[in-house]
Design a protein around this nucleic acid. Structure first.
Length: 427
DNA sequence: TCTGGGGTCCTAGGACCC
DNA sequence: TCTGGGGTCCTAGGACCC
């Protein structure tokens, strides 16, 4: 049996941990640049605050109901996430935990819960809450997709279920599937949900579970659809995944705090993103063969549907794979020259690294001289200093010092758990 | 009028996830 | 005026190979 453990309103819960007077009060957390709402407490949901909705549209509602509002504080969430995951590893053994996202993990319960699964689920929930202060919901079922269904039901009926739902008989599974609208199934997004309802008269997870593999292949994106239907029928095909698999692509992209016109501002931003991406690259011990850069102009027209405008991008293949910041900044900045149009306003830019390989097995290039080892040493030093001090004590000059493009974060809470000078104080 | 039957590799784009 | 920022996998189609 598999479980999915999912933190309830995770970012909101993190903020509440250090401001307990907000318990049972409405809370929301905003995305970078204070653009969208990305986490809502149950109380905020009850007032009708929409997920992923733009903040400026929800603002009247938020002010009317006195909703506590925070910019996102990823240092804090990352640290608390680590504590939750460590707790799970201690409970069921680290080889049985697959961290799926910042606030979710799949567990393999085959060894941990030989007896009463309900009991096991409750113990997991209680232990995580006791050790970290974070409330979680637990869904337990034979497959990953079904455990997600169980988890949804646990979240929907927190009181009755005590945030734990187990689907271990055919009757329980069928009844749960009937209670699950098609759009809530893991793997069915907006496009498919609409298509399934209108073209195929599939309205619930139960309807979908009655379809054949052949049907799924035709109507639900090929092999992905086949796997989904199998899992709904209780046949596991999405197995637990190995952890520590290196990422295949690394991206750093940001909206600007305000639209930017000057090419030098864009170059500074792109150099900064390249530095950040290079850090991520080194952290997983990879080097990149391809670097691409994109910019997004501010849309001139008032067409609200295409609010982003086109993404303009270009890439270069590097002569030799690298993880060195300066070797990545240079081509990144050159790409900006290629993409930039004079006189245009830009609202976003990004750097993506791909063609990733392990940096111990970099394919040599006959036409490029062997690189010196000192470079790697320098990068390690910079990473260590930046990690132990505040953000970006050391940076490359190309990243700039004015930072006209920097994003807005006007309501961020202190980084209570990861900065000495922002430590939580008890008086 | 007829026009093989496999492969591989690459890229762009579409769908999904949190 | 104001709408994150990451990731994944899959498919189709083109170029090229024998």
């Amino acid at each position: 049996m598999k479980a999915i453990v999912d933190c309830n309103s995770f970012y909101c819960s993190c903020e509440r941990l250090f401001q307990p007077h907000l318990d049972n009060k409405p809370v929301v957390v905003l995305s970078n640049n204070d653009g969208c709402i990305i986490s809502r407490s149950d109380e905020a949901k009850a007032f009708g605050v929409q997920m992923a909705g733009p903040y400026f549209l929800a603002k009247p509602l938020i002010e009317k109901h006195n909703v506590a509002t925070f910019s996102s504080n990823y240092n804090l969430y990352g640290d608390l996430s680590w504590r939750v995951m460590e707790t799970l590893r201690m409970l069921v053994g680290k080889e049985n935990v697959e961290v799926y996202s910042v606030d979710e993990a799949f567990l393999n319960l085959d060894e941990f819960a030989k007896g009463d699964l309900q009991e096991a689920g409750l113990r997991i929930r209680e232990t995580v809450e006791e050790w970290t202060g974070i409330k979680v919901s637990v869904g337990i079922a034979p497959t990953k997709v079904l455990s997600k269904v169980a988890n949804h039901l646990a979240k929907k009926k927190k009181i009755e279920t005590q945030c734990v739902v187990v689907l271990d008989t055919k009757e329980k599974i069928d009844s749960a599937l009937q209670d699950t609208p098609i759009g809530e199934v893991w793997g069915v997004g907006r496009q498919y949900a609409e298509k399934l309802r209108e073209l195929n008269a599939v309205f619930t997870a139960f309807d979908l579970s009655k379809k054949t593999g052949e049907w799924a292949h035709k109507n639900l994106g090929g092999v992905v659809g086949i796997r989904l239907v199998k899992e709904l029928k209780g046949e596991p095909v999405n197995e637990m995944e190995e952890q520590l698999t290196a990422k295949k692509m690394i991206a750093t992209t940001r909206m600007f705090g305000k639209p930017v016109k000057d090419i030098n501002d864009i170059k500074e931003a792109v150099a900064t993103y390249a530095s950040r991406a290079a850090e991520k690259l080194r952290r997983q011990g990879s080097a990149a063969n391809i670097i691409s850069v994109f910019v997004v102009p501010k849309e001139q027209s008032h067409n609200t549907y295409f609010r982003h405008g086109p993404t303009i991008s270009s890439y270069v293949t590097l002569p030799i794979a690298t993880s060195s910041t300066n070797e990545l900044i240079k081509p990144a900045v050159q790409l900006v020259d290629k993409l930039y149009e004079h006189g245009r306003l830009y609202k976003k830019a990004g750097v993506m690294l791909s063609g990733l390989v392990s940096d111990t097995t970099i394919q040599g290039n006959l036409f490029v001289a062997e690189r010196d080892n000192g470079k790697r040493l320098l990068m390690n030093m910079i990473d260590n200093i930046n990690f132990s001090q505040r953000d970006d004590v050391l940076k490359f000059a190309a990243s700039g010092t004015k930072r006209n493009w920097k994003m807005r974060m006007e309501m961020r809470s202190p980084r209570y758990t990861s900065r000495w000078e922002e430590l939580f104080e008890v008086h």
